[in-house]
Write a protein that binds this DNA or RNA. Structure first.
Length: 196
DNA sequence: AAACGGCTCAACCGCAGGAAC
DNA sequence: AGTTCCTGCGGTTGAGCCGTT
């Protein structure tokens, strides 16, 4: 059995206080990101390392854009989701100043509904198939091959995909721009850079 | 003004992958 | 080669906010 990520009884949970934010910010600015597991102790925080990382990444990190998504951002998210499925970190990587959590929330609260209203199935981006709208776990399957395109194409190493590999190939193959989704030409330059 | 219901979003949970040993 | 540890990811939850009745 793997150890729990932190001593449950000794850590705070729930909303972060201002003091905790300050401690975390100060520590990370001084020592850099990483070593999340040992960070809480070193920074004097009664938090799980995971929780610290999340707080930093989603809220405290500098250069975070907060507030409403612009139309261009919405558009990009929809297009990227059609290609990548629920790979929020990859999608967020294309949106400067946005976090995966933010993108995921925005998708689930706004964009999914918007697509449904337009008669587009948010799961596979096909027009007209709006059944199984609920975000069931099965709708995308496991973390890997969690998109209809991937599932359909997942022979060989098609799945080793993402992180460093440019996307241009998957978007420009023989079936290129019409992609699996039946969407019209997305015409995206999806060369993925390393997330900063 | 109070009660209610829906919505939003920060935070948590569990899992998987890779690194380190 | 096998095991353990750490990190990152996606799914889910729940407190709080806001609009409606």
């Amino acid at each position: 059995m793997r150890k729990p990520c932190c001593e449950k009884k000794k850590t705070n949970k729930g909303a972060w206080s201002k003091q905790e934010d300050e401690k975390l910010t100060e520590f990370v600015e001084k020592n850099g990101e990483g070593s999340w597991r040992s960070l809480p102790l070193a920074a004097g925080l009664l938090r799980c390392g995971k929780s610290c990382r999340l707080r930093w990444v989603n809220y405290l990190r500098p250069n975070l854009k907060r507030g409403n998504f612009g139309e261009d951002e919405e558009d990009l998210i929809i297009k990227l989701h059609a290609l990548l499925g629920n790979r929020w970190s990859l999608i967020a990587g294309r949106l400067p100043g946005r976090t995966d959590n933010e993108v995921k929330n925005y998708w689930n609260t706004h964009l999914r509904r918007k697509l449904i209203q337009m008669g587009v199935d948010p799961n596979n981006h096909r027009i007209g198939h709006t059944q199984n709208i609920g975000l069931s776990k099965s709708s995308f399957g496991s973390r890997k091959a969690n998109h209809p395109c991937k599932a359909a194409n997942s022979q060989g190493d098609n799945d080793s995909d993402d992180h460093q590999k440019p996307f241009t190939d998957s978007a420009s193959g023989p079936e290129s721009n019409t992609s699996c989704s039946g969407l019209p030409d997305l015409n995206l330059d999806l060369t993925i850079g390393l997330p900063s």
